[in-house]
Design a protein around this nucleic acid. Structure first.
Length: 109
DNA sequence: CTCGTGACTCCCG
DNA sequence: TCGGGAGCCACGA
């Protein structure tokens, strides 16, 4: 049963455990399209508020926040720090400790 | 229905 | 090593 890309992405986002982060590309790849990173971002931006998705746990491939709005960028960082995620001096997240692999729960449904 | 844009990523020069 | 360009799909108007 293959669900829509959007549904998968939302589903994956809801399964991100606290204190962990993932990347757009990872989620997209887990949803079936490694090139759908933009759609993941689009979905997040579009449905995060209405679907209560943990958008703040999603960062770019560098482990940094890619949001265009500086204020939301700050909010996301604040939320992540509250969950125990630590940012490096370069505002990067240590993937060795906080990276969560969406593919791990993909087939758990 | 069609067009435009986007919180990304990868490949090539 | 670093920079720029292209690709992809979904959602909103």
């Amino acid at each position: 049963m293959v669900q829509s890309f959007t549904i998968k992405v939302k589903d994956i986002l809801r399964r991100i455990p606290p204190g962990k982060v993932t990347t757009y590309g990872l989620v997209a790849a887990a949803a079936g399209d490694y090139r759908g990173a933009r759609q993941v971002a689009r979905i997040l931006h579009s449905s995060s508020e209405k679907d209560k998705l943990p958008w703040h746990r999603v960062v770019n491939r560098e482990g940094k926040i890619s949001i265009c709005s500086p204020e939301w960028n700050q909010i996301q960082r604040n939320l992540l720090e509250k969950e125990g995620i630590i940012f490096s001096k370069n505002d990067k997240i240590d993937f060795q400790k906080f990276l969560w692999n969406p593919a791990a729960v993909l087939f758990d449904v």
